[in-house]
Structures are given as C-alpha cells and as structure tokens.
Design a protein around this nucleic acid. Structure first.
Lengths: 141, 141
DNA sequence: CTGTATCCACCAGGATACTG
DNA sequence: CAGTATCCTGGTGGATACAG
C-alpha cells in the first residue's frame, strides 16, 4: 500500500519505481511503507501464513510441515521457511543425527504475526457472507 | 493459508488443486479457507490497500485516486476499483454530467478491512526494526 | 530425511494507444 | 474525464530430478 518506494510488490515484475515524489497516502508516512510492503508481501504470499498457522501447534520437522501443508511443493516449503527464518519469524534447529533431523518453531515475533493474521481470518469469517453476496450480485465478470 | 481449496493463490498459475484431502490446519476449518484466501488475495495485492487507505479520507474521483496513488497505472486502478466494488468494499457513483464525474467511496465493509489492515501496518511498524535486524544478520542470500 | 537445482507455465501488472 | 484494449515483461511457484 502507499507508494511502493521501489516496487517490491510480490516481487512480480517491477522494474521502475514510481516517477512521482513520495506521496503521503492517508496519514501513513511513506517512510514506513517499505516495511509495511514487506510484511504484506510475506502475509500475502501463498504459503507463509499457512506455515505459521501450522507451526502454531508446536515445532515440526520438515517432512511433517510438508504433510500438514497439503499441496506445498518442496521448493516452496524450503523457500518459505528460509524467508520466514530470515525475517526472524521462525527458528531452525538441526540435530546432528543420522538420519538428520531439523525442527522449525515459531519465534515470539512469528506468534505476533500469527495473531494479526488470525484477526484477519476472523474478519474474513465474520464478513464472508456479505462479500459473497456482493460478488454474486456483481453481474458480469 | 491452509489448503487453498482450488489454488486461488494470487491467481498466478494454479492449474491443479492439492491432491490431498482437506487438512485441518491449526484449528481453522478448511471450510473457511477459501474466504480467507480471497481476503488475503485482496489484501496482498499491490494496490487494493492503498486505494482503501486513500479513500479513508473521503470519496474521490477517478483522476484524484490516480493522483493520490502515485505509480498506479490506469489499468490497475480500474481493475482494483472493479474488484473492490465487486467485493462490496467500495461504491461507485456516476453523475450524469458533462464532463462525466464518478466518485468512489468506502463502504462500512471497506472501512472494516481498512481497520484490520491498519493493525497490520501498526504491527509492521512496531516490529520492523526487529525484522530488519534479522534480515541483516541473515548471512547469505 | 532434508533439502538444492533446473526448467517452464502462467498471470499480475506496467506501457501505450484508443474510445465514449 | 473516465475508462477500455492490447502487448509485453518477469517473477512466482509447480514439477521433476538430483544431492548431502
């Protein structure tokens, strides 16, 4: 939202930044927009919230995560875990065993994000009928 | 999050659904996941939240929106407005005048989403330092 | 078991030109 | 003024094969 300083977007294309100046945007300092974008990009991507939601139940191993997040590919699981770890939302603990065992767990920060996400989920649930009605009533396309 | 019933994703590819069954996912009934996905897709896309944020200040005309959301293309403004309208988050009022005048305004539903988004923004702001630190400390890639 | 590497399909979204 | 139509880019993310 608000002036993607440099188009972070979801990472989709984004070659040039906006040609205009900052642009205040409804009371939100453009300064913060980069961070907000980043958080949104994390929340908005396909698997992060799912992984966080799944980890809410306690630490899990790679394979268990794969099982609990049906449909995720190995590639995306790895990428998602890496990004979440880089953001400090989850921790990775590797045990030097044979066979190798790695456990992922939520950090307090990650739990915080999950709470916000949960409120979003709650809102979505509270209003989904309303939204569906509108969508259904929207005639074409 | 949680079992994209049919891969809605951000609309990106998504040809097949997950081959597995429902998959409960941390207490969130798979039933609701479709709606949550939809809301997330709206929140997560590039311009919706910005438009909503801008409209928080009161009804605006097409051109004004374009000005207040620096960097948005006509195409994306139109698409975003259409989607928001279809979801019942904003209203469109056309006045039969010359030259034509069209005003977009938030609905109560839209304001509700904006509040949730605002809390997300607040969280992002409260923790951006923490996140940045983690990102900086993340050695490679 | 826990990943990494490669290939590629697909679609969001920018640029541009045109219309009522 | 308020859009629509068309073309194009490039990043996301699935599939698959391979590695420590």
């Amino acid at each position: 939202m608000c002036v993607p300083e440099r188009n972070v977007c979801h990472g989709r294309h984004s070659r040039i930044g906006p040609r205009d100046g900052p642009g205040p945007c409804a009371g939100i300092p453009a300064e913060q927009m980069a961070f907000v974008r980043q958080v949104l990009d994390r929340v908005g991507d396909k698997w992060s919230l799912l992984v966080i939601a799944v980890l809410e139940g306690g630490p899990l191993r790679y394979t268990d995560l794969q099982r609990q997040a049906p449909g995720i590919s190995q590639r995306m699981l790895t990428l998602t875990l890496r990004r979440l770890r880089q953001d400090g939302l989850i921790t990775r603990t590797a045990y030097a065993e044979v066979p190798p065992r790695v456990e992922y767990a939520l950090t307090p920060l990650g739990r915080g994000l999950h709470e916000i996400a949960a409120s979003l989920v709650r809102w979505a649930f509270d209003h989904h009928e309303e939204i569906r009605e509108h969508r259904a009533h929207a005639t074409a396309q």
